[in-house]
């Protein structure tokens, strides 16, 4: 499989998954479920250094480059909807090569109608988190 399309496929999978929901509350219900299922970040990484401060909810993000050159993200948030959105980001961007992460255009939130959560005025830390994930991709690819 072409590595450029791998993350694209992950995004399409999420878009399809959300197609079955007709209204906002169902979408949010699903996001809440996804948030609850997110693998916990280890306590040693849930520290202020990994905190992405949003105005309202807090997001912790940790990144690791494993021996195979694959980036693994773990994250958490004190707000469950934010955590669900964070989990979706991780589904797309974690377990990927640094360059893939740096290059990927994230369009799935727009496709599922949740792009407003990425707006700079939303202040839930999500936009900063995506930027931070990309920065990790760039930093790790330079190694």
């Amino acid at each position: 499989m072409n590595t450029d399309t791998r993350l694209e496929l992950r995004q399409r999978e999420i878009i399809e998954e959300f197609e079955m929901f007709s209204d906002w509350m169902e979408k949010y219900e699903h996001i809440i479920e996804i948030g609850k299922e997110l693998d916990p970040i280890s306590e040693e990484h849930k520290v202020d250094d990994n905190l992405i401060k949003g105005c309202q909810s807090r997001v912790w993000l940790h990144a690791e480059l494993n021996s195979e050159g694959i980036v693994i993200f773990t994250a958490d948030s004190d707000a469950i909807i934010t955590k669900g959105l964070v989990a979706l980001m991780i589904r797309v961007l974690s377990d990927a090569e640094p360059l893939e992460i740096a290059k990927t255009e994230l369009h799935f939130l727009e496709a599922i109608g949740l792009n407003s959560h990425l707006s700079p005025t939303r202040s839930n830390g999500l936009l900063s988190m995506v930027k931070q994930m990309k920065m990790y991709g760039i930093a790790f690819s330079a190694r």
């Binding site: 906002w24 509350m25 809440i32 309202q56 909810s57 707000a79 469950i80 909807i81 934010t82 839930n124």
Partner: peptide, 14 residues
Amino acid sequence: GIHPSDIGTLLDGL
């Protein structure tokens, strides 16, 4: 046990 921003987001949905 519930973050205020979660309530706000869901209320906006309504």
